[in-house]
Amino acid sequence: MNIIYVLIPLSVILMVLAIAFFFWAVKNDQFDDLDTPALDVLDEDDEKDRGGEG
């Protein structure tokens, strides 16, 4: 049973990492638009004719 003394603190560290990653994602606009990306998948044509580079 001693393994839990390692695994459970490990799970806590993982949770902290997950939260840090989520905060990073929020900061980088990943959660501002939750509606349109769902439709992007439906586009069949590729994006190579889109001129906007940058």
Binding site: D32, T36, G52
Partner: peptide, 13 residues
């Protein structure tokens, strides 16, 4: 978004 000079357009519904 297909216009030449538009790098990104995001619409907040």
């Amino acid at each position: 978004g297909s216009l030449k000079g538009v790098a990104e357009i995001r619409v907040d519904v």
